[in-house]
Design a protein around this nucleic acid. Structure first.
Lengths: 188, 188
DNA sequence: GGTCTGATGACAGTCACTGACATCGATGAT
DNA sequence: ATCATCGATGTCAGTGACTGTCATCAGACC
């Protein structure tokens, strides 16, 4: 047994999600989150850079999953198809966790600061994606545009998945979203 | 003459841009901005909701320009072409102000909080754009994806323009960006 | 001259976030 | 076993962004 309960970080994330859901983000103070987790405010800030970040703990892992899949896609694949392979990879990480995703997303959309931070995470994924594409030999501005397109597909596909009937697999929503993007940007 | 110097809002924006450039965003306090503008901190917050917003004063006008152009594009135009018409419209607002745009952009890219706020402004334009497209009869998720694609083209085109030789017109960079997006999303 | 209005100042307060230092259980060397 | 060290936490005193409230004062309108 340690001197402290294990998984302080996880307890903080759990407490924050609960309190943001119960009271709302703005009405929740960091001191309250820390107290529910059995810690102090100062310790909260040792684990999370700010009050928003606690909701985005998994985002760097997700980004890594995405980027790795893009990097490992067959060399012969077109850039947009490599990105699609990345999308398939992260779908696996979400399937079966839809309820958690819904609760979290409801908290985020309810507050401007949290939506703002979500945009940062998506932009970070876009940048990392563009890097990965460049390492595959894709030139600029094609790399950036392909990455931006991929993130747009993800945003729309994610939303489709959250509101779709229960059986729907995320990868199906992603394919739907991608097909639509290709349709609207098609040359005449 | 009034009791107060005119254009308090503009003086605050000017002072903020200068100070953020001279000292950096984080090292500048709102009290300093207000003092340089000959006002008090409290008055700053009556004009701008927060310390970041002061750099984005023109963004709602820009959004309106964009949306109006999309709404007024000929009915027969495909969604992506209506968005292109909107891009052309905002290009006119930027041409001739490249130096100002560069100074402002340098301040923004130097700070994470400001980049975060910039993403919010772009996301807001995307949402407004999707609304305008829906009013043109475009269905979901095509409207959202077309809007996201349009914003991606704008981001890349804007960057191209800022770093291009002086003679380059913004609309030329935008066309270049759009062509590239169409190329990378082309069906095989 | 009186009244009303809108922009501003003055001031106290909350809370996110930081720096500095103390505490204490565990771990490993002696 | 004892001791030095280390890492996670607590304590405390800040700073600065942002808000609520009330006072002030020039100009407009009567």
């Amino acid at each position: 047994m340690g001197r402290w309960e294990p998984n302080a970080r996880g307890r903080l994330a759990q407490a924050a999600l609960e309190l943001y859901g119960e009271l709302g983000y703005e009405q929740t103070t960091v001191a309250e989150i820390a107290k529910r987790a059995g810690l102090t405010e100062r310790t909260f800030f040792r684990h999370y850079a700010d009050k928003r970040e606690v909701l985005f703990d998994g985002s760097s892992a997700l980004q890594e999953l995405f980027v790795t899949a893009v990097a490992e896609a067959p060399e012969s694949m077109a850039p947009i198809d490599a990105v699609t392979a990345g999308l398939e990879a992260i779908c696996a990480a979400f399937d079966g966790r839809r309820e958690h995703a819904r609760r979290r997303q409801a908290v985020i959309v309810a507050n401007a600061e949290l939506r703002e931070r979500e945009l940062v995470k998506l932009a970070s994924m876009s940048t990392a994606l563009a890097d990965a594409l460049r390492r595959r030999g894709v030139a600029e501005p094609a790399a950036t545009l392909t990455a931006e397109a991929g993130i747009a597909v993800f945003k729309v596909g994610f939303e489709l998945w959250l509101t779709a009937p229960e059986e729907r697999e995320m990868s199906q929503s992603m394919r739907e979203s991608l097909a639509e993007l290709k349709a609207v940007t098609a040359r005449d």
